[in-house]
Nucleic acid binder design. Structure first.
Length: 306
DNA sequence: GTCCAGGAGG
DNA sequence: CCTCCCGGAC
């Protein structure tokens, strides 16, 4: 040990965790098409937006065809909204598709088709919040920035604090911990963010973490403590899907997406057949219209917007 | 039944 | 803080 720097035990553990995780990343990282410098910053952004609340395995085929159709912001900006909503398919939360196109239009028209390279510039874009901006900064630009999502919060809380992250909004403690353990070197910080997230996605999962396969099990305070409160969460049980407005909105959009391109319209009869509860159906149609996902025509039919 | 690589609006 | 927004994997 050098005589100038007195390394604390915590520093040593942190460094050991970084090394083990980086080695694990080398051989275990999933070969996703937007990784390892194979796409543009815009491609990374698209992958992150598609991945919001959506499993990566479902995202991959959508991302491929999406990027083939619209390789950059200018291309997406020029597409019709109907095409964009249709291409979003069954990824869910279609407002994301609308915001992604709005984002593309801002980038194309106000940024000369160049994605901003600052956190503030990115968060100013439609549909880009703290997580996605940080992810693009780290994964696309290689900047040193702490990325914080539910996986990272869970992994860091377990490994370094020995307890479950209880969900809810990101706390000051979450941010301080993420900052404290982020490697100083930019390149290493990018690997760190990706590998911690990957570990949370495939090994250190919420309910059934596979500690026997974990590269940092020897340093994990949560495991050492006997995994107290495993799977515990503060968030209330999620709203059911069956019978919700989300289901009804999905039915309406699915009916429109199923129509041939160029005439994606459904009439009164077909609309009414979609859902029994007329009041709820009308409310959902109104909310889809407000969101800009559909247009209500004077004759009562619906169509996807131009 | 549970879980998601969140963001926006209230 | 809170709620809403989708759909499939497991």
């Amino acid at each position: 040990m050098g005589e100038t720097v007195d390394m604390t035990e915590a520093d040593g553990t942190r460094e050991t965790v970084r090394r083990h995780l980086a080695a694990w990343w080398e051989t275990n990282a999933r070969d996703l098409p937007w990784r390892f410098g194979r796409t543009t910053p815009w491609g990374v952004l698209v992958s992150e937006v598609m991945s919001q609340q959506t499993q990566m395995s479902r995202v991959v085929p959508y991302w491929r065809s999406w990027m083939a159709a619209w390789p950059d912001a200018a291309a997406l900006a020029a597409a019709s909204t109907a095409e964009v909503i249709t291409a979003w398919g069954k990824l869910g939360y279609p407002r994301r598709a609308l915001r992604l196109q709005e984002c593309a239009r801002v980038v194309a028209n106000e940024c000369h088709d160049d994605l901003p390279e600052t956190y503030d510039g990115l968060t100013a874009l439609p549909g880009i919040g703290d997580y996605t901006a940080s992810a693009v900064m780290s994964f696309a630009y290689g900047k040193r920035i702490a990325v914080i999502d539910t996986n990272i919060r869970r992994v860091l809380s377990r490994v370094f604090d020995g307890r479950e992250s209880l969900g809810g909004a990101t706390s000051r403690a979450d941010r301080e911990l993420a900052q404290r353990v982020l490697p100083d070197d930019a390149v290493r910080s990018t690997v760190w963010n990706q590998s911690v997230m990957e570990l949370g996605a495939v090994v250190c999962t919420a309910k059934k973490p596979m500690c026997e396969r974990c590269p940092v099990s020897a340093e994990c305070r949560f495991l050492a403590a006997g995994r107290p409160g495993l799977g515990e969460r503060r968030t209330r049980p999620r709203q059911r899907f069956q019978g919700t407005d989300r289901q009804v909105r999905g039915l309406v959009l699915n009916a429109l997406r199923a129509k041939p391109q160029g005439s994606q319209t459904i009439g009164r009869e077909e609309i009414r057949a979609l859902w029994k509860d007329r009041v709820q159906l009308d409310a959902c149609i109104a909310s889809l219209d407000e969101d800009g996902l559909i247009e209500m025509m004077p004759d009562g039919s619906l169509r996807l917007p131009d």
